[in-house]
Amino acid sequence: MIMYALETRNLTKIYGRGDTAVTAIADATMQVKPGELVAILGPSGSGKTTLLTSIGLINEPTHGKVVLDGSIVADEGWLPGIDLKKLRREKLGFIFQAHNLIPFLTALENVMVALEINDQTPQTAKKRATELLAALNLDHRLNSYPSALSGGEAQRVAIARALANNPKVILADEPTAALDTENGKNVMTLLKNLAVEKRSAILVVTHDHRMVEGFDRIFHVSDGRIVDEKNAQ
């Protein structure tokens, strides 16, 4: 039996009730294996961010199931008593459109935050954060504040933060939107390598077709539905 890093079954999210109800995602079903690099592609308003937030344990699904690393976390709503924050800390990593680094912390401290909120000691967190940043060629930028980093460097710090707790799934929301084409391609290449190297499933939400070259699979989303699934390789 295949153990998926992430699985959704008939995932549905409806906003509002009655006549004003809007279906943002309808019956989204997908399975993502560890180490797989998956793109969720679709135009603005297609529901891809809602899909990402539901998978990311932020937005409670109305119907359907979400299974994360073999454990059901949502089945017609969140499972009772489930600690979503703990799951987000331990199983998920997030990469944002605009890096979302904490402006008053250095690159090193930004990565350490993700470790410290997961109960790592400051010493362990510092060691791990330094290693991660060095692996992403940022060892010369450890003590730089986000304002002093280039867009590509800031996004790499954000990737280091997402990788900090060895997540099973990394969710990236338009990670190249704030970058120029070259930096965007570099970030995508980095994500591809990380998926293989770290055996983390990486889901990238984007509207840019050019950026999904070399992805394992591409889900096309339109009007809240997964309308097409391509096995890219």
Partner: peptide, 16 residues
């Protein structure tokens, strides 16, 4: 707000 939202998203507890 964005910093707080980011911290919450990456799983920071309320006490943090």
């Amino acid at each position: 707000i964005k910093v707080i939202a980011t911290l919450k998203l990456i799983g920071a507890q309320n006490r943090v």
